[in-house]
């Protein structure tokens, strides 16, 4: 396994999108091939091991390329591939599926901001947004809570709904087309707390990214934290008219459901989104 995870060089590397890099595989790689693998008239043992080595990288690079198109657009292909190579060298796949390959990329970017070009906060937040889109693809949908049960039920949000408080308008970056220059205002790093609130969810077999207002975000967070509509409304500054409009939208989208039994505060995990100080609260099982 260690041999497969070594960086690719030479002709194998030229077959990938990775930028040029001088070097060669380790002496251990050559020794392993020589000691363990039979050479044939067509292929030397080293070449046979190299076939597996390059396939390992091709498979991982193809998969992650599909999952982070907007991050690649932000960084540019060369910086993106340099980042991905560094990420995969340090954070190998520990899942049975390649769909989870990018799960650690946002955290990796926070630890290695130098690999994010000139926009480390945007890059990390964009990675967070794009991985959430992958993640909700396979998240369950639970029956929406019936209107008559809203008051007495212990409420939760749909497992396929993710809430984020971002420092930057990354949803705008994500929406840009391939051939569109990035507007300067999307790359400015606003001062202060995270103030771009985004809901990412699934509706009618599609993944949707929607900007929401801070007050709506806070109310949804309160519902997650308390499970109680009354308690959430007590702590909200929103007007009755605003709340009515949000409820109408949440009902149409089926965002509210009953909390899974056994309800336990231990099932709630508080995550910090990028560098902001506003906690994002999501059920823990989203991230298993």
């Amino acid at each position: 396994m260690a041999a497969l995870r070594e960086p690719v060089f030479g002709s194998s590397r030229e077959l990938t999108s990775l930028p040029p890099r001088d070097g060669e595989v380790s002496a251990d790689f050559a020794t392993l091939a020589e000691n363990e693998i039979i050479s044939t008239p067509n292929l030397h043992a080293h070449e046979r091991l190299e076939l597996y080595h390059r396939q390992y990288w091709f498979r991982l690079l193809d998969s992650i390329d599909e999952d982070f198109p907007a991050l690649k657009r932000l960084l540019g292909a060369e910086k993106f591939w340099r980042l991905i190579e560094a990420y995969l060298e340090i954070v190998p796949s520990r899942s049975f599926t390649l769909r989870h390959l990018g799960s650690g990329l946002a955290d990796f970017l926070k630890v290695h901001p130098g690999l994010a070009g000139g926009h480390p906060v945007q890059a990390a937040e964009l990675a967070q947004l794009e991985y959430a889109l992958c993640d909700i693809f396979e998240a369950p949908a639970r029956p929406a809570v019936a209107a008559e049960k809203l008051v007495e039920a212990t409420l939760a949000l749909q497992p396929h709904l993710r809430l984020f408080a971002f420092r930057t308008p990354v949803d705008g970056l994500w929406r840009l087309g391939d051939d569109v220059a990035v507007p300067a205002e999307l790359l400015v790093l606003p001062a202060g707390e995270a103030d771009f609130h985004v809901a990412i969810f699934r509706h009618q077999a599609r993944q949707i990214v929607r900007r929401i207002r801070r007050e709506e975000f806070s109310l949804l967070q309160s519902i997650v934290a308390t499970g109680s509509l009354a308690a959430a409304l007590d702590s909200s500054d929103a007007t009755a008219e605003e709340v009515r409009a949000w409820f109408q939208s949440w009902t149409e989208l089926g965002w509210l459901c009953e909390r899974e039994l056994p309800a336990s505060p231990a099932k709630i995990k508080i995550l910090e989104s990028s560098n902001n100080h506003l906690p994002v609260i999501v059920p823990l099982h989203h991230h298993l």
Partner: peptide
């Protein structure tokens, strides 16, 4: 099998 070892979502639908 591994494409459907999920809790829900489009694959299981």
């Amino acid at each position: 099998s591994e494409n459907y070892l999920v809790d829900g979502g489009r694959p299981l639908e």
